[in-house]
Design a protein around this nucleic acid. Structure first.
Lengths: 193, 193
DNA sequence: CGGTAGGGATAGGGTTCT
DNA sequence: TAGAACCCTATCCCTACC
């Protein structure tokens, strides 16, 4: 339910490639922390970066991960060393940064950062700080407590009303039934009380 | 030559529905591994399960996947909560486990389902039904329990990751410090040793 | 414990068969 | 032509290993 799959935007991909060019592969956390990329990639984890890079590489080299696996199986039996090829591909891919982002120079001209999410994300930071500030105990909250706090305060303001309204609607259309203040899925379509 | 299109038997379909009822959607491998279903579904893969469930759901909801797509595309606005349900079908279908040979999904209201967009309302409905479905006791949850459930599960899809990521970032930039898994606002920007 | 690599699962778009 | 079964790959998750 939660995650409808967050597709990578061209901008994010560009940032990732630039990051690899700058810090090398396998430095996912470093790339993520680089102020040059951190804002663009703030909704991605280091593991996401790793996965995406794997996907990019493998696509460029073989067309797909599955084909890559098959191909690698064959290669292992022969003595072909494709590490050189791999390295070249990495550089080529990273170089692709230039074509993607802009024609001329510079590895990554800070493109007009689209501040779509800006509001949302900064508010998360605020909530995090709020969570820590408001925490009662001396030690401060752990990650879980912070998550709970953020979730709780980030929810729709009138979620209560919305839920109530939807409940009524679902009862009306017969999807669920309400019996003594409790709700059940409707088995047959007509079971009002 | 591999696969002459293996049609799903009623028994397999029943097992799938029971599996979804037991483990929830998206737990295809789990359902497949459940000793209760594994023998019946032994010639199906987890992806098969997923595909079949999609067919069942979408058929019940819209008549076909193609129509479903069109329908979803069409929707640009949907103010009132008059939108029909989408995911209630899931539960309804699962309920259908008990009487398989009957026409599919008798619970859905007649009116041509006015499909909603993949937005807020639908997901709230889903959550509501999920709340009821997952409720342990026999009677079903009351409004308050449902609200709690919805609030808890309505967080941003990757709010958890986002929060984790932002926490680390804030630690990195020295806004907060992490000590023994707990977080504190950093006083001056350097308080760690 | 934090980070990475790699295998594997899921979601959805797309394709083939009937 | 539609619907069911199946394929493909981007994304996401889990676990072993430093």
């Amino acid at each position: 339910m939660g995650a409808p799959k967050q597709k990578w935007t061209a901008q994010e991909e560009t940032a990732l490639k630039a990051g690899v060019l700058k810090h090398g592969t396998g430095k996912w956390r470093t790339i993520l922390s680089d102020p040059e990329f951190t804002s663009i990639l703030k909704s991605r984890s280091n593991v996401d970066l790793k996965d995406k890079w794997r996907n990019i590489s493998v696509t460029a080299m073989y067309g797909s991960r599955k084909k890559a696996k098959l191909a690698l199986k064959k290669i292992t039996s022969s003595h072909d060393d494709d590490s050189a090829t791999t390295a070249l591909t990495i550089v080529a891919l990273a170089n692709g940064v230039q074509h993607i982002s802009s024609p001329p120079v510079s590895c990554l001209p800070p493109p007009p950062l689209q501040p779509d999410f800006e509001g949302l994300f900064t508010s998360v930071d605020e909530l995090i700080l709020e969570a820590i500030t408001n925490f009662k105990r001396h030690l401060g909250p752990d990650g879980k407590s912070i998550l709970l706090y953020v979730e709780k305060h980030n929810m729709q303001p009138d979620m209560k009303r919305l839920v109530t309204s939807r409940l009524k609607h679902l009862v009306n259309v017969g999807t669920i039934v309400k019996i003594k203040h409790r709700y059940r899925i409707c088995r047959n379509g007509a079971e009002q009380s």
